[in-house]
Computed example of a mutant assay.
Amino acid sequence: MTMMTQRGATVEEAIKAALQTLDVSRDKVKVEVLDQGRKGFFGIGSKEAEVKITVIDKVIPIHTNEKETPETKSIALDDESIESIEDVVKEGRNLSNDVDVDSDEDAIKETKQYLSSVAEEMKIDDLDISYEIDGKYVNFQLESEKAALLIGKRGQTLNALQQLGQLVANKNSSQFKVVRIDVGDYRGRREQSLEQLAERMADRAVRTGRKVQLEPMPAYERKVIHHSLSSRLDIETYSEGSDPYRYLVIEPIR
């Protein structure tokens, strides 16, 4: 069961923000008001309202404020293929259970084979995989006409493949490996987009004098934003919530 806490100027604004983040309608959630909040006197002593949202039906969060490009737009799958990111994870774990390696070189080769197997389950038959080894880092590059399918909504599928690929690579390898998986130059474009978003949201926080809450994102993307804004002295950044709905907050320093 999915749940998250959300703050807002009022209870209704907090609920609305949570529904947008989870991409569900009001009738699909249970709402618990944790704090009614208060307006204060001319803004002094004000406190945000806080609610707890529990999703009744199982859903996958889809939330976006940025315009999608053909490279990042997700592609719907047919009934016989994997239909969600959770299916990718589940299928990947089943395949990884069959992996048995006894050397670092074999671990990398088996990881490559594992990625190919997952792609086949996703009905991708033109996948080309190359990799480079840089110390403990293994960088896999995936190429396919169905690149958008490998990336998924906001990179969710790609992130899942990377997480599972790392599990396979480190199952029996003698040295810990950090697996990085990219499709085209998606990671680079995504980082640039996050850095631009970070600056815009930081400027908004300073201009309005109010903290800005970003959408939930994986740890490495939050790290990109933290790093991008680390030199600014007029704001601070921190994360709140629990994975996979952990989000970053940009707050102006007064």
Rank of each mutant, 00 (worst) to 15 (best):
D102N: 14
R189P: 03
E68P: 13
E80R: 10
E110S: 15
L229H: 09
A18T: 09
P216D: 15
I53Y: 05
A147M: 02
A160S: 15
S174M: 10
I85W: 03
E120Q: 07
S46L: 03
S242H: 03
S193H: 07
Q20T: 03
M4H: 02
H226N: 10
P61I: 02
Q166V: 00
Y238A: 08
L164K: 00
D27T: 08
D23Q: 13
I62L: 11
E71M: 11
L34V: 12
E145F: 08
V29I: 15
G43C: 11
L142S: 13
Y186Q: 02
D203V: 13
V31T: 14
S117H: 06
L248T: 12
M217I: 08
F176A: 00
S81H: 08
E12V: 00
L95T: 07
I108K: 10
A107W: 08
P244W: 05
D87R: 08
S230N: 13
E145Q: 15
D185E: 14
T5H: 02
V224F: 02
M4S: 01
A14K: 04
E91S: 06
E191R: 07
E195H: 01
I225Q: 06
I124F: 12
R154A: 12
L149W: 03
D125Y: 12
M3L: 05
Y114K: 00
A18R: 03
V51S: 09
K58S: 11
R180S: 11
T72W: 09
R38E: 11
A169V: 13
F176L: 06
L115C: 14
T64E: 03
D125V: 02
V179M: 05
L194P: 02
M1I: 10
S174E: 15
I253C: 10
A18N: 04
D106F: 07
A49I: 02
G40S: 13
V59Y: 10
P61W: 01
A14S: 11
A18D: 08
F41M: 07
V179N: 05
A17P: 04
S239Q: 00
K67C: 02
E251T: 14
K153V: 01
I235N: 04
N172Q: 13
R187T: 02
E215A: 13
V11M: 06
A17I: 01
T5K: 13
D57V: 11
G155M: 14
A107T: 00
F42P: 01
Y137V: 09
M4D: 00
S193K: 15
D23M: 01
V88F: 05
E132H: 01
K223Y: 12
S96I: 04
R200M: 03
A205S: 11
Q196C: 00
Y137R: 11
S239C: 03
K47V: 09
E71H: 04
T64R: 04
N139Y: 09
E48I: 06
V101N: 01
H63C: 03
V51R: 08
E50G: 05
S239K: 01
L95Y: 10
R207Q: 14
I85P: 03
Q163N: 02
E120M: 07
R254V: 13
I85H: 00
G209L: 07
L95W: 05
G209M: 07
